[in-house]
Simulated scan of single mutants.
Amino acid sequence: MIRTKKYNCGNYQEIEIFNVSPRKRKYERARKVKESTPAQKNLNSKRAQRYFARLCNLNFSEGDYSVDATYDDAHLPANRDEALRDVRNYARRVRYEMAKRGKEDVEFVYVISNHKGDDTGSKARCHIHIIFKGADRDVLEKKWKAGYCNTDKLRFSETGITGKALYMARQGKSKRCWGGSLGLKKPEPIVSDRTFTRGQVERIINDPGDGRFISKLINKNNKTKYVFTDCIVEHDGRQVGFFSEDPGDGLGFSVLIRMRRE
Results as ranks from 00 to 15, higher is better:
148 Y>T: 15
33 V>S: 14
135 A>D: 11
35 E>L: 09
93 R>D: 10
96 Y>D: 10
32 K>N: 09
103 K>N: 15
29 R>G: 00
34 K>E: 13
96 Y>Q: 09
120 T>D: 07
28 E>K: 08
68 D>G: 06
69 A>C: 12
76 L>F: 02
44 N>D: 06
52 F>Y: 11
31 R>P: 00
103 K>L: 11
91 A>V: 14
41 K>Q: 12
91 A>C: 04
120 T>L: 01
100 K>E: 08
37 T>G: 00
42 N>A: 02
141 E>H: 03
145 K>Q: 12
153 K>T: 04
63 G>S: 01
77 P>F: 12
99 A>D: 09
92 R>S: 07
141 E>A: 07
28 E>A: 06
104 E>K: 07
144 W>N: 00
122 S>A: 12
39 A>C: 13
86 D>G: 09
45 S>D: 13
37 T>Y: 15
117 G>R: 08
32 K>P: 01
87 V>T: 12
75 H>T: 01
112 I>G: 03
90 Y>G: 02
45 S>L: 11
47 R>P: 00
28 E>W: 09
117 G>V: 09
141 E>L: 09
95 R>V: 09
40 Q>I: 07
93 R>K: 06
98 M>F: 01
73 D>T: 05
52 F>D: 02
91 A>S: 08
129 H>I: 03
60 F>R: 00
107 E>D: 14
150 N>P: 02
143 K>Q: 13
152 D>M: 07
108 F>Y: 15
115 H>A: 15
81 D>A: 15
114 N>R: 10
50 R>C: 08
126 C>E: 10
147 G>K: 01
28 E>M: 05
66 S>H: 09
58 L>P: 00
38 P>N: 03
150 N>D: 11
130 I>W: 03
48 A>E: 05
48 A>P: 05
33 V>E: 12
30 A>L: 11
33 V>T: 14
125 R>P: 01
